[in-house]
Amino acid sequence: MSGTPHLVALSVPREPPPSSTYRFRSITLVADYPDTPAAARHTARHVLGEWGLGGLTDDVELCVSELVGNAIHHATPDGRRVQLAGERRVVVAFRYWPRSLFVEVSDEDSTPPTLPAGDLLDPSAGSDDPLLAEGGRGLFIVQSLADATWWAPADQGGKSVFCRFDLGPGRGTLAEAPELGLLTETD
Protein backbone atom coordinates (compact mmCIF):
# COMPACT_ATOMS: atom_id res chain seq x y z
CA MET A 1 0.00 0.00 0.00
CA SER A 2 1.32 3.41 -0.87
CA GLY A 3 0.79 6.62 1.04
CA THR A 4 -1.44 7.96 -1.74
CA PRO A 5 -5.20 7.62 -1.20
CA HIS A 6 -6.77 5.40 -3.81
CA LEU A 7 -9.95 6.87 -5.17
CA VAL A 8 -12.32 4.12 -6.19
CA ALA A 9 -15.25 6.20 -7.39
CA LEU A 10 -16.38 9.78 -7.18
CA SER A 11 -19.86 10.72 -8.20
CA VAL A 12 -20.13 13.00 -11.16
CA PRO A 13 -21.81 16.23 -10.04
CA ARG A 14 -25.25 16.41 -11.54
CA GLU A 15 -26.84 19.77 -12.02
CA PRO A 16 -30.17 19.75 -10.24
CA PRO A 17 -33.25 20.87 -12.14
CA PRO A 18 -33.59 24.68 -12.01
CA SER A 19 -36.37 24.52 -9.41
CA SER A 20 -34.48 22.11 -7.17
CA THR A 21 -32.18 23.09 -4.31
CA TYR A 22 -30.92 19.54 -3.69
CA ARG A 23 -27.21 18.69 -4.09
CA PHE A 24 -25.48 15.33 -3.79
CA ARG A 25 -21.85 14.21 -3.82
CA SER A 26 -20.26 10.93 -2.76
CA ILE A 27 -16.89 9.26 -2.72
CA THR A 28 -16.03 5.58 -2.36
CA LEU A 29 -12.69 4.87 -0.70
CA VAL A 30 -10.69 1.73 -0.01
CA ALA A 31 -10.82 1.35 3.77
CA ASP A 32 -7.41 -0.23 4.26
CA TYR A 33 -5.24 2.55 2.87
CA PRO A 34 -3.60 4.80 5.46
CA ASP A 35 -4.72 8.03 3.78
CA THR A 36 -8.40 7.12 3.56
CA PRO A 37 -9.43 9.34 6.52
CA ALA A 38 -7.47 12.27 5.05
CA ALA A 39 -9.12 11.78 1.66
CA ALA A 40 -12.57 11.76 3.32
CA ARG A 41 -11.78 14.98 5.25
CA HIS A 42 -10.43 16.64 2.10
CA THR A 43 -13.60 15.70 0.23
CA ALA A 44 -15.77 17.14 3.01
CA ARG A 45 -13.83 20.42 2.98
CA HIS A 46 -14.00 20.64 -0.84
CA VAL A 47 -17.72 19.85 -1.09
CA LEU A 48 -18.73 22.28 1.67
CA GLY A 49 -16.59 25.03 0.13
CA GLU A 50 -18.12 24.41 -3.29
CA TRP A 51 -21.63 24.53 -1.85
CA GLY A 52 -21.01 27.73 0.15
CA LEU A 53 -21.24 25.97 3.53
CA GLY A 54 -17.76 26.87 4.77
CA GLY A 55 -19.09 27.75 8.22
CA LEU A 56 -19.81 24.06 8.84
CA THR A 57 -16.48 22.77 7.58
CA ASP A 58 -14.72 22.17 10.90
CA ASP A 59 -17.67 20.33 12.49
CA VAL A 60 -18.46 18.26 9.40
CA GLU A 61 -14.81 17.42 8.81
CA LEU A 62 -14.44 16.16 12.39
CA CYS A 63 -17.64 14.09 12.15
CA VAL A 64 -16.54 12.58 8.83
CA SER A 65 -13.15 11.77 10.32
CA GLU A 66 -14.69 10.05 13.35
CA LEU A 67 -17.25 8.06 11.33
CA VAL A 68 -14.74 6.97 8.68
CA GLY A 69 -12.27 6.05 11.44
CA ASN A 70 -14.94 3.90 13.09
CA ALA A 71 -15.72 2.19 9.79
CA ILE A 72 -12.04 1.47 9.19
CA HIS A 73 -11.27 0.20 12.69
CA HIS A 74 -14.45 -1.65 13.57
CA ALA A 75 -16.26 -2.71 10.39
CA THR A 76 -15.69 -6.16 9.02
CA PRO A 77 -17.75 -7.17 6.02
CA ASP A 78 -20.81 -9.31 6.68
CA GLY A 79 -20.53 -13.03 5.90
CA ARG A 80 -19.96 -12.15 2.27
CA ARG A 81 -17.39 -9.63 1.16
CA VAL A 82 -18.50 -7.04 -1.35
CA GLN A 83 -15.84 -7.24 -4.00
CA LEU A 84 -14.32 -3.96 -5.05
CA ALA A 85 -10.71 -4.53 -6.03
CA GLY A 86 -10.70 -7.18 -3.26
CA GLU A 87 -10.72 -4.50 -0.57
CA ARG A 88 -13.10 -3.23 2.10
CA ARG A 89 -14.75 0.01 1.11
CA VAL A 90 -16.21 3.04 2.84
CA VAL A 91 -18.64 5.38 1.10
CA VAL A 92 -19.04 8.98 2.25
CA ALA A 93 -22.03 10.89 0.87
CA PHE A 94 -23.13 14.51 1.27
CA ARG A 95 -26.71 15.70 0.65
CA TYR A 96 -27.69 19.34 0.82
CA TRP A 97 -31.16 20.83 0.99
CA PRO A 98 -31.83 24.51 1.71
CA ARG A 99 -32.17 23.98 5.46
CA SER A 100 -29.99 20.91 6.20
CA LEU A 101 -26.80 19.11 5.28
CA PHE A 102 -26.80 15.32 5.65
CA VAL A 103 -23.59 13.27 5.89
CA GLU A 104 -23.69 9.50 5.43
CA VAL A 105 -20.82 7.07 6.01
CA SER A 106 -21.49 3.51 4.82
CA ASP A 107 -19.52 0.33 5.37
CA GLU A 108 -19.99 -3.38 4.74
CA ASP A 109 -20.66 -4.46 8.34
CA SER A 110 -24.28 -4.58 9.52
CA THR A 111 -23.31 -4.52 13.21
CA PRO A 112 -24.97 -1.47 14.80
CA PRO A 113 -22.69 1.29 16.03
CA THR A 114 -22.69 1.48 19.81
CA LEU A 115 -21.70 3.98 22.39
CA PRO A 116 -19.24 2.38 24.79
CA ALA A 117 -20.39 1.57 28.30
CA GLY A 118 -18.80 3.81 30.87
CA ASP A 119 -16.55 2.49 33.58
CA LEU A 120 -16.99 3.38 37.20
CA LEU A 121 -14.60 6.17 38.04
CA ASP A 122 -12.17 5.88 40.89
CA PRO A 123 -10.26 9.17 41.18
CA SER A 124 -8.02 7.64 43.83
CA ALA A 125 -6.57 5.16 41.31
CA GLY A 126 -3.61 7.46 40.68
CA SER A 127 -4.43 8.37 37.09
CA ASP A 128 -3.52 11.88 36.00
CA ASP A 129 -6.93 12.28 34.38
CA PRO A 130 -9.34 9.57 35.50
CA LEU A 131 -12.30 11.15 33.70
CA LEU A 132 -10.98 10.55 30.20
CA ALA A 133 -11.32 7.09 28.74
CA GLU A 134 -8.72 5.78 26.29
CA GLY A 135 -11.19 5.50 23.44
CA GLY A 136 -14.81 5.44 22.45
CA ARG A 137 -15.43 9.18 22.32
CA GLY A 138 -15.98 9.37 18.54
CA LEU A 139 -19.74 8.86 18.50
CA PHE A 140 -20.12 11.22 21.46
CA ILE A 141 -18.27 13.87 19.45
CA VAL A 142 -20.48 13.30 16.41
CA GLN A 143 -23.63 13.49 18.54
CA SER A 144 -22.38 16.71 20.14
CA LEU A 145 -21.61 18.46 16.85
CA ALA A 146 -24.50 17.29 14.67
CA ASP A 147 -28.14 18.17 15.16
CA ALA A 148 -29.14 14.51 14.73
CA THR A 149 -27.28 11.21 14.45
CA TRP A 150 -28.68 7.80 13.53
CA TRP A 151 -27.89 4.62 11.63
CA ALA A 152 -29.73 2.25 9.30
CA PRO A 153 -28.96 -1.21 7.93
CA ALA A 154 -28.48 -1.44 4.17
CA ASP A 155 -30.69 -3.82 2.16
CA GLN A 156 -27.67 -5.53 0.59
CA GLY A 157 -25.81 -5.84 3.91
CA GLY A 158 -23.71 -3.34 5.78
CA LYS A 159 -24.96 -0.13 7.32
CA SER A 160 -24.95 3.64 7.05
CA VAL A 161 -24.39 6.11 9.85
CA PHE A 162 -25.95 9.52 9.26
CA CYS A 163 -25.64 12.93 10.80
CA ARG A 164 -27.66 16.04 10.04
CA PHE A 165 -26.52 19.64 10.34
CA ASP A 166 -29.33 22.18 10.39
CA LEU A 167 -28.68 25.53 8.74
CA GLY A 168 -30.03 28.76 10.14
CA PRO A 169 -29.75 30.76 13.36
CA GLY A 170 -26.76 29.64 15.38
CA ARG A 171 -25.02 28.32 12.28
CA GLY A 172 -25.13 31.53 10.25
CA THR A 173 -28.04 32.87 8.29
CA LEU A 174 -29.32 31.66 4.99
CA ALA A 175 -28.96 33.87 1.94
CA GLU A 176 -29.88 33.16 -1.64
CA ALA A 177 -27.24 32.35 -4.23
CA PRO A 178 -29.25 32.77 -7.43
CA GLU A 179 -26.37 31.78 -9.71
CA LEU A 180 -26.48 28.28 -8.13
CA GLY A 181 -30.20 28.15 -7.50
CA LEU A 182 -29.33 27.44 -3.86
CA LEU A 183 -29.61 28.88 -0.43
CA THR A 184 -26.22 29.10 1.20
CA GLU A 185 -24.90 29.89 4.62
CA THR A 186 -23.34 33.24 5.31
CA ASP A 187 -21.44 34.27 8.43
Rank of each mutant, 00 (worst) to 15 (best):
Q83M: 12
A39C: 06
H73G: 02
T57P: 00
S160K: 13
A39F: 08
L174H: 05
P113F: 14
R99T: 15
P112R: 10
D128F: 12
P116Q: 09
P5S: 06
D155Y: 08
P98A: 15
E108K: 05
G158S: 10
P98I: 04
A154S: 12
S144H: 15
M1C: 03
T43G: 06
P113G: 00
L174P: 03
V92G: 00
L167T: 03
S19F: 10
L121H: 09
G138A: 13
S11F: 07
T57N: 04
S106F: 03
L56Y: 14
L120T: 14
S144D: 05
P130R: 04
L120P: 05
L121Y: 05
V82C: 01
L84P: 00
V82N: 02
P123V: 14
D155H: 13
G3A: 13
A85Q: 13
A93W: 01
D147L: 08
L7Y: 12
T4C: 00
L180P: 01
L167Q: 08
L121T: 09
P37H: 11
E179P: 02
A154Q: 14
A85C: 12
G168A: 08
L174C: 11
A38M: 10
A117C: 06
R95F: 05
R41A: 15
R164L: 08
L139F: 12
L139T: 01
T76M: 01
A85I: 07
T4D: 11
